[in-house]
Design a protein around this nucleic acid. Structure first.
Lengths: 135, 135
DNA sequence: CTATCTGCAAATAATTTGCATGTAC
DNA sequence: GTACATGCAAATTATTTGCAGATAG
């Protein structure tokens, strides 16, 4: 018992996840439901929950926003750009050092989430160009 | 215009915030409402939102859990202990280095949130004691 | 076959909002 | 006095759940 079955719905949810960019569960539902109207909200939420449980996807809660899902498993941080609004992956050169810092404060680390607010590389470049024009 | 008024409700909400430990808005509401039944949910949510906006308190979203509020403004991380369930403050020796890492990946950092999952110092000590007893 | 999954629709739970009234300054 | 704030209750929004029927292995 306890065997997890590979259903069409799970495949569709996972595929939507790889195609969308850090989507919320509702966005995944909308994406899947658009092409397959019979797929229900409940199923999408349950499937995503199962994936998160099983470690196939990462559940990310960014700032005030809703819970989002990320299919990239390699350790990385997230940035929320206040210009374009997008959530983007941010790779830190020394992710392990962060956990090490927490350990030194007595907390036994098993998982770690890092989120930034600010401006993404693309929007920053855009701003530079604007400023240059003003001169 | 635009002047923020100092009302009794705001004082009570802030006081509850300092007394509770990383509470959710609903917990703050329950705390305040217990002693002052006329204070409404809407007011508590609005006041907390205003505080977060004005920078008097920090809004923290930890893992899947609800939005929480923190009156400690000094930069620090949060740990969610999977044994006692509590959210505790974790002070990292070099918080700035994390943002520096993100900058090196091109993200222009304005704010940073770090969350850990694991076991807090108190529960870890408890475990040690248990293990010692088994010998 | 049968344990797991799904669809549906109803139930929760958190948070927001409209509006008439209250009150800080 | 008046602009901002509050109380209330209804509206939204995200997510969960119960259950009967469908289906993967």
């Amino acid at each position: 018992m306890g065997a997890v079955r590979n259903t069409r719905q799970k495949q569709m949810v996972y595929e939507a996840l790889t195609r969308l960019d850090h989507p919320t569960a509702t966005q995944v539902y909308e994406c899947v439901h658009a092409e397959h109207p019979t797929v229900s909200r409940g199923t999408v939420f349950r499937v995503l929950g199962g994936f998160a449980e099983g470690g196939q996807v990462r559940r990310v809660t960014i700032f005030g926003s809703d819970t989002r899902y990320d299919h990239t498993l390699a350790p990385h941080a997230h940035g929320r750009c206040r210009v374009c609004g997008r959530v983007c992956d941010v790779f830190l050169p020394d992710f392990d050092a962060i956990a090490a810092g927490a350990e030194s404060d007595g907390f036994c680390v098993e998982s770690c989430e890092v989120e930034f607010g600010g401006i993404c590389a693309a929007c920053k470049r855009e701003q530079m160009r604007e400023n240059a024009k003003e001169e």
